[in-house]
């Protein structure tokens, strides 16, 4: 097997600046308070993801999931340790990143696709597929300003899943829109993994999602890797946590 993502003793520290203006800095310094604090968002995390594997990263809010995803995508760089990725990185990180209200759906498809690394030719070939998947044919030449939030997200998703890349990073909230569309999203992601053999790295605190998509799960606790195993066991591990919230309380 070849590895797709390698994290080797990765740590990332964040600095909180308490005083941003000169006046505040002087006042804090006079009181003898520190001007900044730093804390570890991710601490000494090591794991490997094999090519074609689909791995879910779970943990509570503030456990460092998103930071770890950003380290994998290259948006952030580790302070210590090493992050290595094989192949192009694509992702459902922010749906509709760079969508501009004053541009039409069509123009936004091209712009957003280019931001996600698609060439003009690739976008042209996949254009109909994208519009069809999002179900916005009628409005494709309307300014995106007039789109409902559901339409925007569907279009964002439809473009993002067409992005080329061997590694697919997915942030939570990947399944968007109403129930049927959510189902379509999940099916599409499974297809990327199982049919196209792409590596999936999914960040979510929805146990259900991880169970449905992933064949391996990691659990982060306060920036450190606390569990690495099957999604089933991961759920048990998390249930053991005393302060575990109910799974999707709003999802009846």
């Amino acid at each position: 097997m070849t590895s797709s993502i390698v994290m080797d003793s990765v740590s990332k520290q964040f600095t909180l600046r308490h005083a941003k203006t000169l006046k505040r800095m002087v006042m804090r310094a006079a009181k003898g308070k520190p001007l900044k604090d730093s804390f570890y968002a991710v601490r000494d995390v090591s794991f490997e993801v094999e090519q074609g594997e689909s791995i879910g990263l779970m943990g509570h809010n503030g456990s460092g999931k998103t930071t770890l995803l950003k380290l994998a995508s290259g948006v952030m760089r580790p302070d210590e340790g090493e992050v290595r990725v094989r192949g192009r990185i694509a992702g459902l990180v922010e749906l509709g990143a760079g969508f501009h209200n004053d541009l039409t759906g069509r123009e936004n498809v091209f712009l957003n696709a280019a931001i996600l690394g698609m060439s003009e030719k690739e976008t042209r070939t996949k254009f109909d597929q994208i519009v069809d998947f999002a179900g916005v044919e009628r409005f494709i030449d309307t300014e995106i300003l007039h789109y409902s939030s559901g339409m925007r997200m569907r279009l964002g998703f439809a473009i993002a899943v067409e992005a080329p890349g061997e590694v697919f990073l997915i942030d939570e909230g990947l399944a968007v829109g109403d129930a049927p569309f959510k189902k379509k999203c999940i099916t599409k992601i499974k297809e990327l993994n199982q049919v196209e053999g792409r590596t999936i790295f999914l960040v979510s605190h929805s146990v259900k999602q991880v169970q449905r998509i992933c064949d391996r799960a990691l659990v982060l606790e306060q920036g450190s890797l606390a569990f690495d195993g099957t999604p089933k066991e991961a759920v048990k591990f998390m249930r053991g946590d005393e302060d575990l919230e109910d799974e999707d309380p709003l999802d009846f």
Binding site: S3, S73, G74, R84, V85, R86, E166, E196
Partner: peptide, 14 residues
């Protein structure tokens, strides 16, 4: 896993 395409090498993202 698609074996037809030679695997690109590992690199630092970012």
């Amino acid at each position: 896993t698609s074996d037809s395409v030679p695997a690109p090498s590992l690199r630092d993202p970012g």
